[in-house]
Design a protein around this nucleic acid. Structure first.
Length: 593
RNA sequence: GGGGGCGUAGCUCAGUUGGUUAGAGCGCCAGCCUGUCACGCUGGAGGUCGCGGGUUCGAGUCCCGUCGCCCUCGCCA
C-alpha cells in the first residue's frame, strides 16, 4: 500500500504519528525558497503537507517543482499546526504532515479549468475532460450519492425475498413505443438486435417461470431526443411481483421510497403516499405529473364565460373548448403588462395556446381590458370560482381541453418558481392511478396504448373494451416526485385471451402479435401467475436527491443533447471491414474530411 | 423537424452608433517572500473574436450560410 491514511482522516489525535499519503496536488503555496505548503487531495478530503529545508533540502528542491494535479506520494510525521495556525475550513485543518520523503508519481499537464473554485466552465469542456470534471467535489458527491441509493435499494429488496436477475441487452426489436437502438447481427445477415427500452417482457416471463419477486438495476436505451432529465441510456430500478394486486406494489414502493430517502438523505416521508386519479390531476393541474410542493390549482370558468358577452371565449366554448385559469396570489403587481402581453403570452404559445387573458382583482371586482364583457354578477362568480381575493392576478387560457392542460400546467410551474411558492429543497411524492388504457391516435386512426400493451384493464371498465375503449381505465400507476415522473408501472395481463383482445384493439393483428410478442403470448398460455410491477428512474431519483435539475450531473459519463459522448468521441465511423462483416452498406457516404 | 439562448486569451467574461494597437479577473511562466491555506508582491507570455462567405474605405460589431453546446415544443408504449 502506498498510503497509511487517506487525505481526509488525520486529526489532532494523530499528532506525532508517522504516516504516508498519496493524492493530487490541489494547491501549492511557496513561502520563500525553503518552505512549501501543498494541499494534498483525494476523494476523502484534503490534507496540508509541508516541505521545509530544515528536514531535507533535496525534498525541498523537488517540492518547488510540483504543480497542480501532479500525483505524489509523501511520507512524514503528523503534527499539530499550533495555536492560531489551524484552518477551520478543512476537516484536517488542525494538523499537517511534515514531509520527510516525497515521490512524484505522475506529472499533470496544466488543467484547462480549475478543479475547485471559480465559475464552472462551459459544459462542452467539462464533458470532453470529464476525468477532470469528475474530480470536482460536487460530482464526487453525486456519484457517491448514486452508489448509496443503489445499495439502499438492493438492501431493501434483498430483505424482502426479491432476486436480482439480469436480462439480455441484445433482444428483439418491438417497434411499439420509443425508437430502438439497433445492433446488426454478423451471423444473421440483414437481422438486428435491439437494445432494451426496458426489461418489460423478460421480467413478465420471469414471473411465468415462478421467480415470484424480481428486481434489477437495469440499463435501458431509447433513441429519442434528449432533455435535461432524459439521456439515451439510463438506469431503471426494475421490479416485478407475482400474486399481487396494485395496492401490494404501491405499498412495496411506499416502503422503498421512505426507507431510501431516510437512509441516503435523512428525509422523513410520511406514508402512505397520497394517491390521485389521473382524471383528478388533469382537471386540477393539467398534467399527469403535477408538482405538489405548491398549490395553485387550475379552475374552470367555462360555464360563466359561456353566458358572458366575450365572443373570444364563447367561440372557443362553441367549438368544444374550455376556459381555464390560475389564480396568482398577490400577483396583481408582480407582472407588468409587457410581461403578460409579451413574455407569458409567448410562453403559453409554445404549448399551442393562441392567447393569454388576464384580470386583476381590485376592490372586489375585476380589472381588465376584457372585464367589460362580464356582468357584475359574472365577475363575482369568476372571483368565487377562482378562489381569488383583492390583489390576485387571474390568468386564463381559452382553448381545447388538451391545450389548456398543457399551457396552464407549464404556466403553473413557471409562476410558482418565479414567485418562490415552494422550498426547492422540499419533496412531494404522490401516486397517480387510473390512467386511461388507450389514447386515440388520429394520425393512425386507431388507439395507442397509454402505458404499454401488456397493461391490465381496470376490472370495472372491461365492459367498455368493445363499446368505448377510450373510457377504459388501466390498472396502472405513476409515482410523481416534484413534478417528475419518478416511476411507472402496472398490473399486467396474465391471460393470453385478454392480451389478444388488447392487441386487436391496438390493431396489431394476431399474426403480427405472434411475430412480435409471440414468446410472451406463448408464455402466458403455460400457466401465468397474476403479476404486477413497476420501474423507477434511478437517474432522476439521484438527481432530485442531489438537489439538481440536470440528469447529466449524476451520470459519470453522460451524452450531449445530440447523443454524443464528447469524451470518447462516440458515435464514430467504423472501418470498412467492420461494415462488410455486418453486411451493411451506407446509402450515403460520410462527408469528406 | 420547429422555437429560443450561447460561442472573444487556457477558464469566466467585458467590448459603445462599424473606426487607432481587442481588455479585465482567474489560471500559466519567471523572480522575490520561513506559517501559508482564495497567500502576497514584481514582471512576462498568451487571441484564426467557432468556421465560411458577403456588405463596407474599414467588421468582434451588420447580413447570409454553417458547426458545436444548452433550454424547449414535437417525440419519449
Amino acid at each position: 500500500m502506498l498510503r497509511t491514511h487517506n487525505c481526509g482522516e488525520l486529526r489532532r489525535e494523530n499528532d506525532g504519528q508517522p504516516v504516508s499519503l498519496a493524492g493530487w496536488v490541489h494547491s501549492y503555496r511557496e513561502q520563500g525558497r525553503e518552505l512549501v505548503f501543498v494541499d494534498l487531495r483525494d476523494r476523502y478530503g484534503k490534507t496540508q503537507v509541508v516541505f521545509n529545508t530544515d528536514e531535507d533540502s533535496r525534498i525541498d528542491e523537488l517540492a518547488r517543482k510540483l504543480r497542480r494535479e501532479d500525483v505524489i506520494h509523501v511520507e512524514g510525521t503528523v503534527r499539530y499546526r499550533g495555536d492560531g495556525l489551524t484552518n477551520p475550513k478543512l476537516d484536517t485543518g488542525e494538523i499537517e504532515v511534515r514531509v520527510t520523503q516525497l515521490k512524484l508519481l505522475s506529472r499533470s499537464k496544466t488543467p484547462p479549468f480549475e478543479i475547485e473554485g471559480g465559475d464552472l466552465p462551459n459544459e462542452e469542456l467539462r464533458l470532453s475532460h470529464r476525468f477532470l470534471d469528475l474530480r470536482r467535489p460536487e460530482l464526487q458527491k453525486n456519484i457517491r450519492l448514486r452508489h448509496d441509493l443503489t445499495q439502499a435499494v438492493r438492501a431493501y429488496f434483498n430483505e424482502r425475498d426479491f432476486l436480482e436477475i439480469e436480462t439480455p441487452m441484445l433482444g428483439r426489436s418491438t417497434p411499439e413505443g420509443a425508437r430502438d437502438y439497433l445492433v446488426p447481427s454478423r451471423v444473421h445477415p440483414g437481422s438486428f438486435y435491439a437494445l432494451p427500452q426496458s426489461p418489460q417482457i423478460y421480467k413478465q416471463i420471469l414471473m411465468v417461470s415462478g421467480f415470484d419477486r424480481y428486481y434489477q438495476i437495469a440499463r435501458c436505451f431509447r433513441d429519442e431526443d434528449l432533455r435535461a432529465d432524459r439521456q439515451p441510456e439510463f438506469t431503471q430500478i426494475d421490479l416485478e411481483m407475482s400474486f399481487v394486486d396494485r395496492d401490494d406494489v404501491l405499498e412495496m414502493i411506499d416502503g422503498l421510497v421512505s426507507s431510501v430517502m431516510k437512509q441516503v438523505r435523512d428525509i422523513d416521508v410520511p406514508l402512505p403516499l397520497p394517491r390521485y386519479t389521473h382524471a383528478e390531476v388533469m382537471e386540477k393541474y393539467g398534467t399527469d405529473k403535477p408538482d405538489l410542493r405548491f398549490g395553485m390549482p387550475i379552475h374552470d370558468i367555462s360555464e360563466i364565460a359561456a353566458e358572458s358577452d366575450f365572443s373570444v371565449f364563447k367561440t372557443v366554448i362553441g367549438n368544444g373548448g374550455r376556459i381555464r385559469g390560475l389564480t396568482v396570489k398577490n400577483g396583481a403587481e408582480a407582472y407588468s403588462r409587457r410581461l403578460l402581453d409579451v413574455d407569458l403570452k409567448k410562453f403559453v404559445g409554445e404549448y399551442g395556446a393562441r392567447g393569454l387573458a388576464y384580470m386583476k382583482v381590485v376592490g372586489g371586482a375585476l380589472e381588465s381590458t376584457i372585464a367589460k364583457f362580464f356582468s357584475a354578477e359574472q365577475q363575482q362568480a369568476i372571483i368565487a370560482t377562482m378562489e381569488a381575493e383583492d390583489g390576485d392576478l387571474l390568468l386564463f387560457v381559452a382553448d381545447s381541453w388538451k391545450v389548456t392542460c398543457a399551457a396552464l400546467a407549464a404556466l403553473r410551474n413557471r409562476i410558482a418558481k418565479e414567485q418562490n411558492l415552494y422550498d426547492p429543497a422540499s419533496f412531494s411524492c404522490l401516486w397517480v392511478v387510473d390512467f386511461p388504457l388507450f389514447t386515440w391516435n388520429p394520425d393512425e386512426d386507431r388507439f395507442d396504448a397509454e402505458h404499454h400493451p401488456f397493461c391490465q384493464p381496470n376490472a370495472e371498465d372491461v365492459e367498455y373494451l368493445n363499446t368505448d375503449p377510450g373510457k377504459v381505465r388501466a390498472d396502472s400507476y405513476d409515482l410523481v416526485v416534484n413534478g417528475y415522473e419518478a416511476a411507472s408501472g402496472s398490473v399486467r395481463i396474465h391471460d393470453s385471451e385478454i392480451q389478444k383482445a388488447i392487441f386487436d384493439l391496438l390493431r396489431i393483428d394476431s399474426e403480427e402479435a405472434e411475430r412480435r410478442f409471440g414468446f410472451l403470448l406463448d408464455a402466458l398460455r403455460f400457466g401465468a401467475p397474476p403479476h404486477a410491477g413497476i420501474a423507477l428512474g434511478l437517474d432522476r431519483w439521484v438527481m432530485m436527491l442531489a438537489g439538481n435539475d440536470n440528469i447529466r450531473e449524476v451520470i459519470a459519463f453522460p451524452k450531449t443533447q445530440r447523443a454524443a459522448d464528447l469524451l470518447s468521441g462516440a458515435p464514430s465511423e467504423v472501418d470498412e471491414q467492420q461494415l462488410l462483416d455486418l453486411h451493411i452498406e451506407l446509402s450515403e457516404p460520410p462527408a469528406a474530411e
